[in-house]
Amino acid sequence: MKQNKKKVIIITDGDEYAKKTIEFLSKDIGGTCLAYLSDNPTHVTPEEVIKAVHQANADPVYVLIDDAGIQGVGAGEKVLLALANDPFTEIIGAVAVAAHTKNMEWSRFTFAIDNNGELIPNAVDKEGILVPDTDRINGDTVYLLDQLNLPIVIAIGDIGKMYGKDDIKKGSPITKKAIEIIIERGGSNE
Results as ranks from 00 to 15, higher is better:
Gly31Thr: 08
Ile65Thr: 05
Glu23Lys: 15
Lys78Asn: 14
Cys33Glu: 09
Ser38Asn: 08
Asn85Trp: 03
Gln71Ser: 15
Ile65Glu: 08
Phe24Asn: 15
Leu34Ile: 03
Ile65Leu: 05
Glu48Trp: 02
Val49Lys: 00
Leu83Tyr: 09
Val61Tyr: 02
Asp66Met: 02
Ile70Ser: 15
Ala82Lys: 09
Tyr36Ser: 15
Ala58Trp: 08
Val79Cys: 01
His54Ile: 06
Asp59Gly: 02
Glu23Met: 11
Gly31Tyr: 06
Asn85Glu: 15
Tyr36Pro: 07
Glu48Gln: 12
Leu80Lys: 04
Phe24Met: 10
Ala58Ile: 08
Asn40Ser: 13
Glu48Lys: 13
Leu25Gly: 06
Gly69His: 10
Ala68Cys: 07
Ser38Tyr: 06
Leu81Ala: 02
Asp66Ser: 11
Val49His: 02
Ala84Lys: 07
Ala82Ser: 05
Ala35Pro: 12
Asp86Ala: 01
His54Asn: 13
Gly30Ile: 15
Pro60Gln: 12
Ile70Tyr: 15
Lys27Tyr: 07
Asp67Ala: 01
Val73Lys: 14
Gly30Gln: 07
Gln55Cys: 07
Ala58Leu: 15
Ile29Met: 12
Ser38Trp: 05
Val49Arg: 02
Glu47Gly: 04
Asn85Arg: 10
Asp39Ser: 14
Asp86His: 05
Phe88Ile: 00
Phe24Trp: 13
Leu81Thr: 04
Asn57Tyr: 04
Val44Gln: 02
Thr42Asn: 01
Lys78Leu: 14
Val44Met: 04
Ile65Val: 11
Ile65Met: 05
Asp86Phe: 01
Lys51Asp: 05
Gly31Ser: 02
Thr42Gly: 05
Pro87Ile: 07
Val73Trp: 13
Gly76Tyr: 07
Glu77Leu: 00
Ala68Trp: 10
Pro41Met: 13
Ile50Cys: 07
Asp39Val: 10
Gly76Phe: 01
Phe24Pro: 04
Pro41Thr: 12
Ala56Leu: 00
Thr32Trp: 00
Asp86Ser: 03
Val49Ala: 03
Glu48Gly: 04
Thr45Glu: 13
Gly76Glu: 03
Ala84Ser: 11
Lys78Pro: 00
Cys33Thr: 05
Phe24Glu: 06
Ala52Gln: 03
Leu25Trp: 09
Asp28Ile: 13
Ile50Glu: 03
Ile29Gly: 01
Tyr62Ile: 06
Lys27Pro: 00
Gly69Gln: 12
Ala56Tyr: 01
Ser38His: 09
Gly72Ile: 00
Ser26Cys: 06
Gln71Glu: 13
Asp66Phe: 04
Gly69Leu: 07
Asn57Gly: 12
Ile50Tyr: 07
Phe88Arg: 11
Ala84Gly: 02
Glu23Asn: 14
Ala75Tyr: 04
Gly69Pro: 08
Ile50Arg: 11
Phe24Tyr: 15
Asp86Val: 00
Ala52Ser: 09
Pro87Leu: 06
Ala58Phe: 12
Lys51Gly: 01
Leu81Val: 03
Val73Glu: 15
Glu48Leu: 12
Thr45Leu: 14
Thr45Asp: 12
Pro87Trp: 06
Tyr62His: 05
Pro60Tyr: 09
Ala75Gly: 03
Ala58Lys: 12
Glu77Ala: 00
